[in-house]
Design a protein around this nucleic acid. Sequence first.
DNA 1: CAGAATCCTTATGGATACTG
DNA 2: CAGTATCCATAAGGATTCTG
Lengths: 112, 112
Amino acid sequence: MSTSQLDLKMIDCPALFTIQLISGKWKTRILWHLRSGAAGFGELKRALPGISPKVLTQHLDALVSDGLLARSQWNEANVIHSAYDYTDYGRTLIPVLDALGNWSANQRAAVQ
Amino acid sequence: MSTSQLDLKMIDCPALFTIQLISGKWKTRILWHLRSGAAGFGELKRALPGISPKVLTQHLDALVSDGLLARSQWNEANVIHSAYDYTDYGRTLIPVLDALGNWSANQRAAVQ
DNA sequence: CAGAATCCTTATGGATACTG
DNA sequence: CAGTATCCATAAGGATTCTG
């Protein structure tokens, strides 16, 4: 499911590469949530009501494998904890996400 | 399949609204192609090798129904012609598409 | 807690033939 | 030319149970 490979299509349409990284029912919401700081698996799950652990894992794995997020883990009283956070690379995407968000906010404002 | 309805998720994550408009295997490429001007059904089909007429119709219908594109048609020697072009609303999305494209171009440049 | 495993439903896309 | 109609394949997502 990794989208890190380039493709002829993406040379014709560079926007496609970026889109593929952030497409998926929950990816944008994960990335959006992490803008305010790292979060563990459970926190993300709570922040995204309705997502199943399998799907959350799938999306996180894709984001990690595409280099946008990094995962860390540690033990506390014999219990595993994890944290997902932007990589430096992933962080460069935030202004782009903001552009997407601002556009939609402007559209909504214009309608009202 | 219209994504024009707002949703609670999109208030938490405004970027999601924009993403939904341009997600789909060919949507970005259609929008990218039309940046250089309107195009008919056949031209788009040729510009997107591998797309089937059904799927092209689906994507165009979605883009029109979401208000990003407009469709016009006319007759010439008893043969139907069509043209798809940005609406004024859709055109406001072009800078956002450019942001997506520029980001991917920068990443590719950085890798090399 | 953080997932892996399994099974299942739905959404998306595709090939092809046909029509006004 | 510009699609529709039909049938089909795969991908994406989801519910649930289980494990270190």
